[in-house]
């Protein structure tokens, strides 16, 4: 399934156009990078694709995932995962329960679900940390846990809103590799918003510059 933005444009509540119309196609396993100065509408673009836009913003054009037009669907029906700058985990749930929250309902049975969560934790190098309070994880661990949570929901695409910018430079490289590698293996298209040129290079997909 590839993600297609077809003449997508967003206007602010006052009627001012934030960006677009723009066209972009992201192939499965590929990560497209969106760059541009602050205020260019990068985060709004992600919100538009994911269905998280605030009331009052006007969207035109279409968002198509695997041939299906998603425009107008609520966020929970789009099957598009989202990762924020400081990996958002639910503060009231343990790390494992956070992942279980993401895990697609398709997988049935307590044992099977628990096993799936354990495997995902293992994959992210978080084995044995399932019982932990998410607030006690390091930035890198949080980022990996959030990515796993997102992928367990079996999304058709992922949106990444500057997911590496809050990490310290040593960790950033490793987490970036892990993220792109995992997305490649999941074979889903991803949209990455970033200030960092290195992110764009490492993503290796199409680069779209908003101005």
């Amino acid at each position: 399934m590839s993600l297609v933005l077809a003449s997508l444009a967003v206007a602010a509540p006052g009627g001012r156009r934030l960006f677009g119309p723009l066209d972009l196609e992201v192939a499965p396993g590929e990560t497209a990078c969106i760059t541009g100065p602050s205020g260019a509408g990068k985060s709004t673009l992600l919100a538009a694709a994911g269905g998280h836009m605030e009331r009052g913003f006007r969207l035109s054009g279409r968002i198509i995932l695997g041939g299906r037009d998603l425009s107008g669907l609520p966020a929970e029906r789009r099957g598009i995962g989202m990762m924020f700058q400081e990996a958002v985990l639910f503060p009231h749930l343990s790390v494992a329960d956070n992942l279980a929250f993401g895990l697609a309902p398709r997988l049935r049975g307590r044992k099977a679900r628990r096993a799936a969560v354990a495997e995902a934790l293992e994959q992210a190098g978080l084995g044995g940390l399932g019982g932990r309070d998410p607030a006690t994880l390091s930035g890198g661990q949080r980022a990996r846990a959030a990515l796993m949570q997102t992928l367990l929901a079996e999304p058709g695409a992922v949106l990444l809103d500057e997911p590496f910018s809050a990490l310290d430079p040593e960790r950033r490289h490793a987490i970036r590799q892990f993220t792109f590698e995992t997305i490649r293996r999941a074979a889903i298209p991803a949209l990455l918003v970033s200030h960092d040129r290195e992110d764009a290079v490492a993503a290796g997909g199409p680069v779209l510059s908003l101005s």
């Binding site: 994911g50 929970e76 639910f90 503060p91 929250f101 929901a153």
Partner: peptide
């Protein structure tokens, strides 16, 4: 938190009961 939950496929009632009210 609510955006995250929605992106994970949770509908508005599940978001209310499982995320917002507990938090």
């Amino acid at each position: 938190l609510e955006c995250s939950a929605a992106a994970l496929g949770a509908g508005s009632w599940r978001r209310l009961w499982r995320v917002k009210l507990p938090v």
